[in-house]
Design a protein around this nucleic acid. Structure first.
Lengths: 363, 363
DNA sequence: CTGAAAGCGCTAACAA
DNA sequence: TTGTTAGCGCTTTCAG
């Protein structure tokens, strides 16, 4: 399938120049006379020369690669082996919600990754992705750390000490989560401010005084911020955040569904349910719909994230849009700047959000 | 921020061994006596040693990295500069559909990428991603090609000649699109079979005889396959695929909306609209809903892909689910195998799809 | 504008 | 079991 790949030496020989000239043609074409350059480029094409990034990285001490490390919520053992079963090419099911053997998509990381890739491209960088899974992020992170010029880390996917060790060698940019010391650059979104504004709207415009919070995992920094924003809005209105205790559904649609069914069955629905993300809000919406409970007339539901499905739901979902893609872009932008000027002051940027008032609150 | 990173030499000196031993400890710990090993590992930790992947790749001639290259539908000039404007952290809008300055998410690539990452992790590989954008995929592909042991390429994101040049050096696995020669391994999904089954269901179970196809770009290989499947089902039933000419909306929701509005206005709605992807189907559904046209009673609508929004729409969307994540996983799996045995026969795998009969056809 | 030569940090025979 | 040594393919002074 492949013979020995040509190297600079081959190209140099073929073009009748030195390897230094070949290198120049590729890196700073302006430094080479036109005729020489085109001669070299001719050889490059003819031989199908592809420079070895390893050699280049070794010699130049920079790889042009930025690593992106994000938490993998899939425990290793939950990932099914790829099966080789062949039951024909088409299966047919009625109204199957899931059972497709697919895990729910993680819109958030996907979007961040897309943004990161986008900005990397604009900056002439390449992206290397890794996820923390199972018990030992350490090996993966080290593995990636040796390959890249800088590392972008999502939320709390890497333990502090490891992070510090890495930051000692290459710049690290943190996405989301709390700011951790000022060894790192940091990008976040206005979590608390956003949900506070939305909650405030529900209270003062829609005249609701009985609200309940539906949160994700308590150890999620995002959830912590959002809950704080929620509480703040209530207190500002003279309401007690603990009048109705916060509910938890781990950011997951299915879990929220079960929880909502429970509330319906018990007749304990609040006048407004402020959810910490869209997935949960959609689950709730779905259950209420089936139970014949009118949204927003009987119950107001809001989400957070601004995922696409919230535009297709009935009613459409009021939510706080967070610019996930921009989050990724901004992180890489900051990283690129950092690589250019390693000694500049650490940067911390907070991105604005947009409250989207739609059918589930302002129908 | 960082001093000179320690190398094998530093570790060797610190541990009082040779660099070869350090290398062994890291690569084949079994070949080293226990005491030596722990001494070395101690030094590694103490010095915060991180091996250079460049040097390693150069010496070992393999990088442990798989590249994934996918088409970027964003023309470069359409990507807005990241703005530094600060108009406060919260903005508030009513019922804004878009205007969020975000491009529509590309669920398909996201899912494929996620699957690829997953399988790469299981195989101890790292993923490097790049997108073709603007006029010149060549430079990016070359750039990536030099960094990886193998390249996974989505659909037609890379011109044939370039692809051949690359395949000459490193293994290439194609995802989706037509099979292109047998220099390459290839994974695809049962596009035509899936849509044929769904169309057949609409015709023979739902007794519909007036169908119309709503396709994507004509040069999309996926669309070509899907259209073929559609036609086949019609012919099998003795219907003329061209009785109603195929419509085109470039796989985009917005475009499909406009088109649907046109059909409604002209009173030219067919009894069933078979859409080549979910985004378009959702656009149609939305327009019909607003126009007060009953789905599926007056018009049946079907999609293709099985994206999440199709479960939240009203009615829920009948569609053909394609295992996008599995597509990515399978591609990396094949690549990993290929790296292990470069001279095995080229592989071509077709993944099964699932027809999901939901509200928009079988309400 | 071009060439010669010295590494970059690591792996993999081969010796010991 | 461990050490020696010869590259891997490229960038980058420094001369010319």
């Amino acid at each position: 399938m492949s013979e020995k790949p040509p190297t600079v030496y081959d190209v140099a020989a073929h073009a009748g120049v030195s390897i230094a000239t070949v290198s120049r043609v590729l890196r700073r074409p302006g430094d080479v006379r036109e005729v020489t350059r085109s001669k070299v480029l001719g050889s490059v094409r003819e031989l199908g020369y592809v420079p070895s990034a390893s050699a280049r990285g070794l010699a130049a001490r920079r790889t042009g690669v930025v690593g992106v490390f994000f938490p993998g919520f899939d425990a290793a053992w939950e990932i099914p082996e790829l099966s080789d079963a062949e039951d024909g090419l088409v299966r047919m099911v009625r109204d199957s919600d899931d059972s497709l053997g697919q895990r729910p998509p993680d819109l958030y990381f996907d979007a961040v990754l897309r943004g990161a890739e986008l900005e990397a491209w604009r900056r002439g960088l390449v992206l290397m992705v890794g996820a923390g899974r199972g018990s030992d992020p350490e090996s993966v992170v080290r593995d990636i750390a040796g390959r890249v010029d800088g590392l972008v880390v999502l939320a709390r996917s890497v333990p502090d000490d490891l992070l510090n060790a890495i930051a000692h060698r290459i710049p690290v940019t943190l996405i989301a989560g709390p700011r951790r010391g000022d060894n790192f650059d940091h990008v976040s979104v206005a979590n608390s401010e956003g949900i506070r504004a939305l909650t405030h709207h529900v209270i003062s415009e829609l005249k609701v005084r009985q609200l309940q919070y539906l949160g994700g995992p308590e150890d999620s920094p995002d959830d912590v911020e959002r809950y704080a924003g929620y509480c703040e809005a209530l207190r500002l209105a003279g309401l007690d955040p603990l009048a109705l205790p916060p509910l938890r559904a781990g950011f997951r649609r299915e879990t929220a569904r079960e929880l909502a069914r429970g509330l319906v069955a018990a007749g304990k629905l609040p006048r407004a349910l402020i959810c910490a993300n869209d997935q949960m809000a959609l689950g709730v919406l779905d259950v209420l719909h089936r139970a014949g409970i009118a949204v927003p007339d009987q119950v107001i539901v809001t989400g957070f994230d601004g995922i696409d499905s919230g535009r297709a739901s009935v009613p459409t979902l009021s939510t706080v849009f967070q610019p996930m893609e921009t989050l990724g872009r901004e992180a890489v932008r900051i990283m690129a700047d950092r690589l250019d000027s390693p000694d500049a002051e650490p940067v911390s940027k907070r991105l604005p959000v947009t409250v989207l008032l739609r059918g589930s609150s302002d129908g």
